[in-house]
Amino acid sequence: MSAAEPGESTPRAHHDLGGVPKFLCEAVDTAPHALSDFDRRVDALRQILGAAGIMRVDELRRGIEAIPEATYHRLSYYERWARSITDTLLRKGVITEAELTAALERLA
């Protein structure tokens, strides 16, 4: 059996959090947090894209795991989803970078 403690010297990915020492002394926020309209809409879009066969939940997870560690912990739960959905739709060519750039400019 390896003597190393899992999470200290093993090359775990940053989302792979089971037993990780860094968070063991962190309190859990047990208070209820109401979901925002943004949260619900992101969640709904993910479901719609899944049901339509455009992206799988596995692809959502891959995109979340690809977020750099500092950003991963800074973004809210559904902000990670929004980023991952965008990433996946770009990768699959459902939307293009040019279209997204233009759409972002229209929002401004």
């Binding site: 943004f38 809409r41 992101v42 879009l45 719609i48 339509a52 455009i54 690809a66 973004l75 902000e79 990670r80 929004a82 980023r83 959905i85 965008t86 990433d87 739709l89 770009l90 459902v94 939307i95 970078e97 279209e99 997204l100 750039t101 759409a103 972002l104 229209r106 929002l107």
Partner: peptide, 27 residues
């Protein structure tokens, strides 16, 4: 990975929604 992903995720989401709606994939 696209540099666009570094933008505010809330703006990304709004932009993606507008594109999917324009493509008739979502209402």
């Amino acid at each position: 990975m696209s540099a666009l992903l570094e933008r505010d995720p809330r703006r990304l989401f709004a932009a993606v929604l507008s594109l999917l709606e324009a493509k008739g994939m979502l209402s």
